[in-house]
Amino acid sequence: MPAILVENLTRIYETTTGVIRRKKKEITALDEIDLTVEAGELFGLLGPNGAGKTTLTKILATILLPTSGTVRVLGMDAVAQEKELRHRLGILFGGERGLYWRLTGRQNIQYFADLYRVPPAEVKSRVPELLELVGLSDRADERVEGYSRGMKQRLHVARCLIHDPDVLLLDEPTLGLDPVAAREIRGIIRGLNDQGKTVFLTSHYMFEIDALCERVAVLNKGKILMVDTPSALKDLVADLEVVEIECLGAPANVLEDLRQHPRLQDMRVETREHKQILHLQAPAGSELVQEFLQILKEVRVEKVITRQPTLEDAYVRLVGEEALHI
């Protein structure tokens, strides 16, 4: 039995505009999607902003109803058997919200233990264990408002594990964390999966999905574009190489000239502080670096690298321009 089974799932939101003449507008967040996550799997979900990732996570978490379709988690109907199912789901939404800031870390976890109906005897042993797991034992009796972002996120992890759930739904668990804190969270996620927990992970970071997940789904405009292993996704761009050019102040017309290069497959411009990093996808072995630099001859180029395509490049190719808005 799969841990998560989604069939023909559609979710439409209704919004209204105007004050006197109110007009209804429908937004399709999920459009007839199918998805299966096996028990014990670490499954990743990628997609740009507004793709429907959080909507799907909330439906799996039983806090949002689908418009149509079937959602079964651990064999239970997420619409009708939500009370039973909630005992076995651990939910984490990224960011700093979702905690009682005026209370201590320990009080936060203890409260959720009661809400998840964990027997008091178990709470006594589990709270210190989890605080130890997430490295908050020393600060557990301080108010959450004094915690750093990384500490809050680690507390979120402890909170969502208090009832020892079988399935973890993690929506952007490393959002906004510094690299060290994010690495710690990734380590915890991997450890939990090693213990046999099924993990459904949406992430902002491609390398995170690549490093952690056995399979990945790409969601765009409410539709699943592909479900496969990260390496299979990378195979989509196996015939390409990526030229990365770090430059300063490349004007729009020059970038447009580059974009018009007949052998260029795709181009993405990333702005990092005052620098532009151009990611140019070209056929493998085409040796186009000199031609690209010729177009950029009036621009100050600081660094040029030719590298193998990554999961991010494959994702860009699959989703297109919107991929930049993850």
């Binding site: 039983t62 039973e84 789901l89 905690l99």
Partner: peptide, 11 residues
């Protein structure tokens, strides 16, 4: 505080 949804998600 973003806890309303989390409360709803508990049994």
């Amino acid at each position: 505080s973003g806890t309303l949804e989390l409360l709803l998600a508990t049994p």
